[in-house]
Design a protein around this nucleic acid. Structure first.
Lengths: 333, 333
DNA sequence: CTGAAAGCGCTAACAA
DNA sequence: TTGTTAGCGCTTTCAG
């Protein structure tokens, strides 16, 4: 079927030993220019590419990274997941690593046997998986979830700060009645964005009544339910912080259906900085979270750990950033 | 670092030869119950998992599948891509195959060296990649693009039929002025949905003036531009067929911004059956395309080809289906 | 700077 | 039903 040229073919044609071929493949300098040229010629001639399985077997190490995504429904329809995949995919290409995908229910231990390292895209109920991966000696890094009680790398955004920034901005605009639609509270990002929001409001002595906090799950559907609740309230909020841009977009949609103006009647602020925010009827003000960079950072981390050279920073916290566009304004008098 | 138990450890503990261990790993029946039990005990004891690189090297075959996605901007923000990834990921899990990701610019030949087969998620300007993958002896299958002049498998939906179904439904509702926003016309799906739409209209003697055809690219942004054009026309259409649900959703959004009722003033029909269609202000009527199944089918195809047993159907065409919800009605008198 | 030789962990004839 | 033996294609000592 597939009958590829092997290192032997190349060596034969170049009239050198396979060792020499191996040396040029691996960029080892101690090869004479003459031999190097011959080998390169032969490689080109055969369009030779080393067999990775053989390399891995011989080297005893594996330069592929597993990306494990929690498989809850809807995860794949989120900007979050998709941006992560893009970022990880891109970084893997840059570092010449293979990307292997695991979509997990969170329970079965994932097979870390055939990857050099694994990236967990958030950790929800799958701590066990991280533990067992770690136990097998596989380098791990988790994205967007701080874990300080395990010896695992992470790269996360400061979600508490994100919640605070949102609240602070709204307060600075003069709002007194601010509501929030949380993310999935099973995720650390969800609880922490809420926490930051609450914290800052408390510091500013702005009350946050229970009916102003609606538990969402990052989905448009949950945002719609929440928004409808909010607008039905006898004393509706003048500003809404949604824990994801997709939810924020849905809030705007609901508001417009009800004949409310954004930001005239109600201000809306999101979280993510999803490019989709630019194209709706109102450009969304949001908290930018550097997802793509987190993904890249995770790959880089594994890359240096697997290569075993240099030291990789184990715990990284990135800062979110306010991006002001059109969806927030001062409250109506 | 990673010092895994090998087949030797297992054999030693079970007091059998490594061959026997190999046999139980590979579910070969000719092993006595006693030995099988011992081996299983040893495997459990060491939590042994075979080294895939070694298996692949020894077998000379590779059970991983590469998924190559065209890397044009926005691809990853589309329902299409995401659904495909989900489907392929799921099917790979079922078949115990690894999924390796390639995001390609369409030009560099993709490295098929380390995969047993490759799935092309559509083919745009990357025919060359398919050719070279095929030339290297790698089984290939392309999704959503019929290619009859190459010896490659495909699994596609009948997009011409899809366009026809949309037009037919609109006509049956009594519409005379129907417009369409096409998909990216560099994709086969884009041109064929348009073709089917045009075809049927012609058969029914309904004119399709040039200003009723707007070239889109599956993105919300392009749909917005198109919709604004349509609604500005002195004689605007009473129904719009968008080649993707995301575009259809945007058309509805624009319509509502202009104070038009859907479906009262304008009917909208999409393509995909994206679950997001259920949650907007108006549930979207659409043409369902079985993306998830296409993805699964592609994996199954490769699986049987790689395993080399049984015959796999090389060319598969699936039918799209009309899903009636709320966004289409009869035209206003 | 170069090559011979010994594996990496596993599968697959082939014998027994 | 079992084990012996040769590799799969590559890296890596170790001599030269």
């Amino acid at each position: 079927m597939k009958n590829r040229p092997s290192i032997n073919d190349v060596a034969r044609r170049a009239k050198v030993s396979i060792t020499t071929v191996s040396r040029v493949i691996n960029n080892i300098t101690s090869v004479s220019t003459r031999n190097r040229a011959r080998v390169e010629e032969a490689i080109a001639y055969y369009k030779y590419r080393p067999n990775i399985s053989a390399q891995r077997l011989a080297r005893g190490s594996n330069n592929s990274v597993g990306l494990v995504m929690p498989g809850y429904p809807g995860i794949f329809h989120s900007f979050y997941a998709v941006e992560l995949i893009r970022g990880v995919g891109h970084a893997c290409e840059v570092h010449h690593m293979d990307l292997v995908f695991h979509i997990t229910n969170g329970f079965n231990p994932i097979n870390t046997n055939n990857v050099g390292g694994v990236i967990f895209a958030d950790v929800i109920e799958n701590r066990k998986q991280v533990e067992s991966a770690l136990a097998s000696g596989t380098p791990c890094v988790v994205i967007n979830h701080k874990i300080d009680d395990m010896d695992v790398g992470y790269i996360a955004v400061d979600n508490i700060l994100g919640g605070r920034i949102a609240a602070d901005y709204l307060v600075s605009l003069g709002h007194k009645k601010m509501a929030t639609i949380t993310g999935n509270l099973a995720t650390q990002a969800g609880t922490q964005r809420l926490k930051g929001f609450e914290e800052l409001l408390e510091e500013k002595n702005v009350p946050l009544p229970k009916e102003y906090v609606h538990q969402g799950d990052y989905s448009r559907r949950s945002a719609r339910a929440a928004a409808e609740q909010f607008f039905k309230l006898p004393n509706p909020p003048t500003a809404i912080f949604a824990a994801s841009d997709e939810m924020a977009l849905e809030v705007i949609a609901v508001a417009m259906e009800k004949g409310l103006k954004v930001p005239g009647d109600v201000s809306v602020i999101g979280f993510d900085d999803n490019p989709a925010c630019l194209f709706g009827p109102v450009a969304l003000t949001t908290i930018k979270q550097p997802l793509f960079q987190m993904a890249e950072g995770a790959v880089k981390y594994l890359h240096t750990v697997i290569a075993g050279n240099g030291t990789a920073k184990k715990k990284t916290i990135l800062s979110p950033e306010l991006v002001v566009r059109e969806s927030c304004g001062a409250p109506k008098k």
